[in-house]
Amino acid sequence: MTDLQQDFEATIAADHRIEPRDWLPEGYRKTMIRQIAQHAHSEIIGMQPEGNWITRAPSLRRKAILLAKVQDEAGHGLYLYSAAETLGADRGDLTEMLISGRQKYSSIFNYPTLTFADVGVIGWLVDGAAICNQVPLCRSSYGPYARAMIRICKEESFHQRQGYELLLTLMRGTQAQRDMVQDAVNRWWWPSLMMFGPPDDASPNTAQSMAWKIKRHTNDELRQRFVDMSVPQAEKLGVTFPDPDLKWNAEREHYDFGPIDWSELKRVISGDGPCNAERIENRRRAHEDGDWVREAAIAHAAKNSRKAAVA
């Protein structure tokens, strides 16, 4: 082992943070870039399902909240791209990798938002699952990523609470509104559980990521934590989860839940979800439509700095 490698291992072992200009093993750099980029892409694509409802939010209050939430998700994407760049990734490359499908984003955002109740359920369950995943990442061994996650987690708690509050409001409404909530919960529950990734025995990179302290808990641990948190929240809300096997296990002191259809996750990840093509196409169009703006701003800046040099 070289001195550099020893320094790296010692930093990780002491639970200190790795900082941008430290020497890194190539595998750590690659894994970290892939993880941060995939996370950034998820935030960016994640604006679309909810963005779909901004113009049709039922009140000015709900519209302002939704707008702020979607804007936060854009911010999260940008914090994360900024963290990826400290590892030598190029912003333009990352955008192209997303648009060309060479890098992935969370499969949850390939499901459609059919009613306004979906906005509430996304806040409650999807942001809730994201929080479960993200809180331990505030202690990721890579400093810039950990710091971005701290900032993100603070903002996520508003996301989850606004969603749950929206659902509470609907549940106090008409029977049709309550049915709408239950229908949205039925559609989002299983995809939310899939957000934690494949089961531990099918997750080959977990061991290395845990050793590098990039990851602090396994997928199954986090999934269980999420189920345990969500069940009492569902009871309070007055909805049920679409799983006949869901029940308290006094011996394990956890909720048991039914088998997850992993073939669905595989299908959606590999491009065959209900909205994959639309999500990427929207992102591609937004990027290309912005081309002239980026060019014009550069030309304007160049002209101004020439003027300044002459004056």
Binding site: L78, S82, R91, A301
Partner: peptide, 9 residues
């Protein structure tokens, strides 16, 4: 220091 961003000027 809080992070970075891209801008034209």
């Amino acid at each position: 220091h809080v992070g970075s961003l891209h801008a034209a000027d």
